[in-house]
């Protein structure tokens, strides 16, 4: 399991072993929705806001 820093609060966020670039994780400390933008090394960015045409 890897870790990366939350871009909002700086706390450490645990990432699953099979983490994928493009996956979304929540910061357990501040609740920010984060996008995984790198896996080696792990890196997070603030996830895009919900857009009107998102969905299935």
């Amino acid at each position: 399991m890897s870790e990366a820093d939350c871009v909002t609060c700086g706390d450490s966020v645990a990432l699953p072993d099979d983490v994928e670039i493009g996956e979304i994780v929540d910061c357990g400390s501040c609740g920010t929705e984060l996008e995984v933008v790198g896996v080696d090394p792990a890196e997070l960015a603030k996830a895009p806001e919900l857009a009107e045409d998102w969905g299935e």
């Binding site: 099979d18 994928e20 670039i21 493009g22 996956e23 979304i24 996008e35 995984v36 996830a47 895009p48």
Partner: peptide, 14 residues
């Protein structure tokens, strides 16, 4: 093609 890997895409990738 993706812009977000949802749990659904993760299942597919696996």
């Amino acid at each position: 093609l993706y812009s977000r890997i949802r749990p659904d895409e993760k299942l597919l990738l696996t």
